[in-house]
Simulated assay, not measured.
Amino acid sequence: MSHLTITLISSILLSLFPHTPAAYGPLNYACCVKYTRNPLPLRVIKGFIEQSSREVCRIDAIIFFTKNKKKVCASVEDQWVRAALAHLRSKINKLTVKGAPRLTTGQKQLIYTTTKSP
């Protein structure tokens, strides 16, 4: 067989194999692609995570988790977002100072609850 035939057959065989999705990042990771400009009331925010453009997603964002289990994408440049983050951080500091076991941390995720322990 000539090199051309071997190359052609190899190319066809390789194209039949599916591409691995791991090369493109996790498929279940939903990135923010735009920001909301409507401020969220502080009483509905349960927690937040930070999305970095240096990782999988294209934009930097704060993703707020609401009590209704929704995710809201926002820009840290907005004043209402900075105020909400300051409020959440003060709540988190109060919870950790008191030693309450109500604080849950995960990978780049910080969620707090305001329920009182018995």
Score class of each variant (00 low, 15 high):
R82N: 10
C73D: 05
I49S: 15
Q79N: 12
R43L: 03
L14N: 00
Y24V: 06
Y112Q: 14
R54C: 05
L13I: 05
E55Q: 12
T115C: 09
L13W: 01
L16E: 03
R89Q: 15
N28E: 07
V44F: 14
L40H: 10
I6E: 09
F65A: 13
S75D: 11
I9Y: 01
K70M: 07
E50D: 10
S52K: 12
V76N: 07
I92R: 12
L27T: 00
L8E: 05
P26A: 12
R82H: 05
P41F: 07
R58M: 06
P41C: 07
I63R: 04
T113M: 13
T36Y: 02
L40E: 04
A61W: 02
V97A: 12
F48W: 14
R89T: 02
A22H: 14
A86K: 11
D60I: 02
C57V: 10
Q51S: 08
K71I: 00
T7V: 07
N38S: 13
A84P: 03
P21T: 08
D60H: 15
N28M: 02
L13N: 01
K94F: 15
Y29V: 06
A100C: 11
N68L: 03
T7R: 01
G99F: 11
R102I: 05
I49H: 15
I62E: 08
T20S: 13
P18Y: 02
T104E: 14
T20L: 10
Q109A: 13
I9L: 11
L16D: 02
T96Y: 13
A86E: 08
E50F: 12
R43S: 13
N38G: 06
I6T: 10
V97T: 14
T115N: 14
F64S: 02
R37P: 02
I9C: 03
T113F: 15
K34W: 05
R54Y: 12
K69T: 02
E50W: 00
S75L: 05
I111Y: 09
L40K: 07
K94C: 11
A100I: 05
D78H: 11
V72Q: 09
T66L: 10
I59A: 03
Q79F: 07
I12R: 01
T66W: 08
V56D: 15
E77A: 06
E50S: 10
L27K: 08
F64W: 04
S75Y: 04
K70L: 06
P101K: 15
P18D: 08
S52G: 03
L14R: 00
P118M: 11
R43K: 15
I59K: 05
T113S: 14
A61V: 13
L103A: 01
R43M: 04
L42G: 05
S11P: 01
T66D: 07
L42W: 14
L40T: 04
I45V: 15
L110F: 07
